[in-house]
Amino acid sequence: MSLREQWVAFLTILVKEIRRFTRIWPQTLLPPAITMTLYFVIFGNLIGSRIGDMGGFDYMQYIVPGLIMMSVIQNSYGNVVSSFFSTKFQHSIEEMLVSPMSPVVILGGYIAGGIARGLAVGAIVTVLALFFTDLSLVHAGVTLLVVVLTAMLFSLAGFINAVFARNFDDISIIPTFVLTPLTYLGGVFYSIELLPEFWRGVTLLNPVVYMVNSFRYGILGVSDVNVGLSLLAIFGFTVVLFLVALGLLRRGTGIRH
């Protein structure tokens, strides 16, 4: 296929993915909007006003970047894992396998779809947050870079999950037992400076900490960790997962007999 044809094929997948998550918006866009609004009301307004400052900001402002990031992570992962798995499940993956599209294009299309959903939900949550608090944007470049890289990283993770999944249970195990704890313990609701020495060390093993803090740095200008190193680490993880996912797709793991 020529480069132009590959581009058309890539856009075809991306448009299909966007059409999918907008068509089923009550399952994809609405739930994070409701959940995050509840977080804002309860933690931000009701409880937050009693907590006082965190990292030099009022509590509501402090948790907004983390909550945006949490939605991006859950939704980019969720989009790719459920879309690619149902493509496998309905066998419509064969439509792609018979075509001359290269594995890079297929993977790229799904990842772009996951990023699109992550960013769409991130934008919705940001707009909702603005009803509750003011937000600045201290480092726009860092903010954008970290949110896109994170969405990409979790889209890739969702893709790999879908490749190995054999039934619908397999696509909810990782989000429930791995993703949720990692994000809740990933410095969304508190500065890790508050933790005792030991737990701070443990927390630093959690990759989500670096994403949340880099993103918070982009918006508020404060971070518990070194932002440059964090970005580098996220980028490194993304490259590794990309190569793993591509290898699986090339070999046809879980999709070709």
Binding site: Q6, V8, A9, L11, E95, P100
Partner: peptide, 9 residues
Amino acid sequence: TQAGFYGIP
């Protein structure tokens, strides 16, 4: 969509 997979605009 199938046509798109073959690179047809």
